[in-house]
């Protein structure tokens, strides 16, 4: 019994772009001095580096994103999250830091396809034409907070709070609906 399930359990929608909730994903919020040597060391051990302002770095299935001047978000496999949380907390134990496993508090979506940008153009006050790869853009999608980055060619990833995953799915599905392509 007792298998964990993500907010929408991998729900999908197909319009002029594909929308899919990504199931369970490990997410760890790290709040500390981003100049910390211990931080640099522990993320280096994972093949990552401390990202610069608004950047997201990826390596070996993990990613580390700059969320604010004193906050990073580490993405990993859901099964690894509690272990990695403990590892990070241990590495930063001697410093003023707060490491929290937020895997269950969030939902992750991917929008993919040639016109994926158009889906989010309808929801976010963001200039997607100039949003570079490797940038983590925190903004809003319609009425909820969202964090968005280009996770592949013709693919955007979106993180939102778990409780509004259904709302986010609705937004993305409606915005991606056939006939809504922007000429």
């Amino acid at each position: 019994m007792s298998e964990p399930v993500s907010a929408l359990n991998g729900a999908k929608a197909q319009g002029f772009a594909q929308v899919a909730e990504q199931g369970l994903k490990g997410m760890i919020a790290i709040r500390c001095d981003l100049e910390s040597k211990s931080l640099a060391k522990v993320v280096k051990g994972m093949g990552l580096s401390v990202p610069a302002q608004r950047r997201i770095v990826t390596a070996e299935g993990r990613a580390l994103a700059w969320m604010s001047p004193d906050e990073l978000l580490l993405l990993c496999d859901y099964a690894d999250a509690s272990g990695v949380t403990a590892q990070l907390a241990e590495a930063l134990a001697k410093e003023h830091a707060l490491v929290t496993d937020v895997s269950d508090a969030r939902a992750l979506f991917r929008v993919s396809g040639e016109k994926a940008d158009q889906v989010l153009m309808k929801l976010c006050p963001v200039d997607f034409e100039t949003l570079p790869e490797g940038e983590m853009r925190r903004t809003r999608a319609a009425q909820v907070a969202a964090a968005i980055w280009r996770s592949g060619s013709e693919e955007l990833s979106i993180i939102c709070f778990r409780s509004v995953a259904g709302y986010m799915m609705g937004l993305l599905e409606v915005s991606a609906r056939q006939g809504g392509e922007i000429a």
């Binding site: 907010a7 309808k122 929801l123 319609a142 009425q143 909820v144 709070f161 409780s163 509004v164 995953a165 259904g166 709302y167 609705g170 937004l171 409606v174 915005s175």
Partner: peptide, 13 residues
């Protein structure tokens, strides 16, 4: 815009 019906406003679940 999109804000009608099910997505008129966010429903937290």
């Amino acid at each position: 815009g999109e804000a009608r019906g099910e997505i008129f406003q966010p429903l937290r679940r």
